[in-house]
Design a protein around this nucleic acid. Structure first.
Lengths: 206, 206
DNA sequence: TTTCTATTGTTAAAAAAATAACAATATTTT
DNA sequence: AAAATATTGTTATTTTTTTAACAATAGAAA
């Protein structure tokens, strides 16, 4: 399958979670407009996304939730799962670890890094925190492919370099400092302050 | 001015921060390609955004940083500033408070809410945490117009309702539970797990 | 059985966003 | 002084994303 559009990937992740909720409630089939209602989007969009991943529902019966969830899994997940490292054990770093804690997902945060002695060699929600000096070593030994940067912005570029050198293939940058990485590394940036300023702007304009 | 495109607003927020850094370094003028390099985008995009806000640079000299920062302020900020409440004093809630702490920005987090007695009636980075029961009262008295929801997902819809009833005009929803709000309330949703699954997908596909 | 209805799957159109193209021109170089 | 160059501002094009339109049809209703 050719790579899916960005936005479709995002929605698939959301469909899956909503669908799992529905499964847990005992629901077995679902219509496109029901999925749409759960996510507050349109049913066309749902159908289009489902078309793009090559799944088909049954007319008048909708989609088989279990099958759909499974297929989304085939698309989004890898069989062995993907290991993640968090760099920066501040509030946001902890937030990520906490969010994934006890979710049996194919994504696993397997290491955290910091330079603060009070955080190093301790465990937060089963994730061990190492000194930043161990970054390359642990990432290579553990075969970690994804890194989340939640450090102070100033050091983000240097962390990104280390991650890339250690063989990381995807970075989620949570600092407001824009990064650049080689073409074979996927970079997703998210800036909390920008989100907030955006809300503020549209509040002002309304 | 007609409302600016979504993405332009996001970039303006980022331009401003980068430009302030440059000002702090003593730089007074800047070319579009220099801004572009700072953000790892293209210079055309920078020029287009700047065109959209109606600013003009000087040929061969670039943009006057101070003027540009000022104009972005005129667009993004309100004179009196905007007050923000954080609902949910977990890691992410604290993260937001911490991020805005001591930044002299027109955005101010002025109250936090939780239901955990250990958090209530305490102050974190100068932000006082109230019991959730006080939500409507404080929001109205303080004239808070923006709310950040960082609670467990299950209660997010109920919080959103309370916020809307209390007169909030913009919500940043950090929980994975999709919300719906009346048309006159601006809603921005962000889902940490989805970001991460997106990175994972594109790492897998590369 | 026949007609009606709800729903899917897909193509077509529209809207939003990014990128390219390029004319205009101030400044620098020759 | 003339030519070359670097840079802006803007229009045009392309790409991406969303939305609309609608044919096909399984199942429900008549």
């Amino acid at each position: 399958m050719e790579t899916l559009p960005d936005k479709t990937v995002e929605r698939l992740s959301q469909y899956r979670r909503s669908l799992n909720n529905q499964l847990a409630k005992g629901k077995e089939h679902i219509f496109s407009h029901e999925i749409a209602n759960l996510l507050h989007i349109t049913s066309v969009q749902v159908r289009r996304d489902i078309m793009l991943i090559g799944y088909s529902g049954t007319l008048r019966k909708g989609y088989d939730i279990k099958e759909l969830v499974h297929l989304i899994g085939v698309i989004l997940d890898t069989d062995q799962g993907q290991k993640i490292a968090v760099i920066g054990m501040g509030n946001i770093g902890k937030g990520f670890i906490h969010y994934l804690y006890e979710k049996r997902s194919k994504l696993k945060i397997v290491a955290a890094f910091d330079i603060n002695p009070e955080k190093i060699d301790k465990t937060y929600a089963d994730v061990y925190c190492y000194h930043l000096d161990k970054l390359e070593e642990i990432i290579q030994n553990e075969n970690i492919k994804i890194g989340i940067i939640t450090t102070p912005p100033l050091v983000a570029p240097e962390i990104a370099n280390k991650l890339v050198n250690a063989g990381i293939k995807g970075i989620l940058n949570y600092t407001p400092k824009p990064l650049s990485v080689p073409d074979d590394v996927y970079l997703e940036e998210y800036d909390m302050i920008t989100s907030l300023e955006k809300v503020a702007y549209f509040v002002k304009e309304k």
